[in-house]
Design a binder for these strands. Structure first.
Lengths: 230, 230
DNA sequence: CAAACCGTTGAACACGCGTTTAGTCTCTTG
DNA sequence: CAAGAGACTAAACGCGTGTTCAACGGTTTG
């Protein structure tokens, strides 16, 4: 990852890096030990010799990527998590293998992936609280829900690279697309999408009316908005 | 799916439904033909007999789920796509197998999944345009980018069910969580997140300054906001 | 120098996979 | 009733997988 020339690295490290690239590109399930070995220029047996099993190799990759991401600290690092993501995305063409790997971790639920998500969520909550106090962010209706979706929306470009690129007319997410996304997204976060509170108000009414648990099928659909809300 | 009692269905349909459930839960890669056969109460050979191969079974499941979702129409249906999603999510406990399957389709890129996403994106664009004309939605800075992220944010709860649930303190996304999410999300889409346009403005400045292609590493980081923007 | 060690390998093993084959059973049809 | 068709199965085939094994060569150590 950090290596300019592959021959600078230990064989062990080369195997790990090869695994990270392939796991990130294809997912661990569709990546064979022999494939990793070939990319690292070694035999399949050596991969097992160094890591014990494919599963242990995988979890070692998990730890390595998370460590690289959170900046060589095991504990939750708060602020660093979000700035790290910005750094990686800003230079996505350089960090692509690691970003791809992160996407896999967050997609199919693994202990390491869940832990990573928790770190991001905690970082977001902390930052949200700070910025509410600082008067930069409006006090949210439901702090935990808001933090949850803010976090999720933040990792959308990572997890759904392919779809973002597709929607923006490319085949691979690159720096230009992210650059183009910056202002529209900040505009959304600053001014919202709707001109007024009509839709919010009617949703509030509808929810208050059906205070009970579940959905009366016949309620007069208040959401004529584009699909996202909800 | 629609069947109250499994024995009402053709064997073929029971196999297909079993496949949809398992593909949705575990992903096609980690689901074996024998597993599908067992769940359907038949032999593995019969699965192949009816569908030719596992791949053809999979693509038949794709078609079936998309058809159920878009409402028995092959062509892009525009408005229906977004309302269908609301319907399915509102009754997620009932539609979970299909929602899970949709998540897989959108996650690992397959032709059918890409087609589905295109349908959703087109529907969102159309609806966005309408609502701008109707004065419900503010004219966006970049219509295509806005539509892209609106669409993506809309399918986040589908694709990242697990993470949403985790962030909200449950183990599985249910109707109560979605209900709780409604107002905070509409609030975000109505009033935005920030109190004023400070952050938007400084980002605009920073972007204007580095008008060129790439990133000067030394620019004075304007984004002190929670991770999501960008 | 011999011994121990370690990185490394090709070959083999056991297993689960998707698929094929050959056959049985149960209907329908002439 | 005979013949054919189609639903269905047990068994096996071929293959790719993760992993093990025995051995080789170079370096370090007593």
């Amino acid at each position: 990852m950090r290596s300019s020339h592959p021959q600078d690295l230990t064989t062990r490290a080369r195997i790990r890096d090869a695994a990270i690239v392939l796991f990130g590109q294809q997912g661990p399930a569709k990546t064979s030990v022999r494939e990793i070995a070939e990319r690292a220029g070694v035999s399949a047996a050596l991969v097992i010799h160094h890591f014990g099993s494919k599963d242990r190799l995988r979890s070692e990759c998990d730890d390595f990527v998370v460590q690289e991401f959170l900046g060589r600290k095991d504990e939750l690092v708060g602020e660093d998590a979000s700035t790290a993501m910005q750094t990686w995305l800003a230079d996505i063409d350089q960090f692509r293998p690691l970003v791809d790997y992160l996407a896999r971790m967050l997609t199919d639920p693994t202990p390491a992936g869940d832990h990573l998500f928790d770190s991001l969520l905690i970082a977001t909550k902390r930052m949200l609280d700070q910025q509410v106090i600082a008067g930069v962010v409006r006090p949210p209706l439901d702090r935990d829900v808001t933090a949850a979706y803010i976090t999720l929306y933040g990792i959308v470009p990572i997890i759904m690279q392919g779809l973002v690129a597709r929607a923006l007319g490319g085949d691979q997410l690159d720096a230009a697309m992210l650059r183009r996304s910056t202002l529209p997204l900040l505009d959304l976060y600053t001014n919202g999408l709707y001109t007024d509170s009509r839709i919010l108000d009617s949703a509030r009414d509808a929810l208050a009316r059906t205070a009970g648990p579940s959905s009366d099928k016949g309620e007069n659909d208040p959401n004529q908005d584009p699909d996202p809300p909800r």
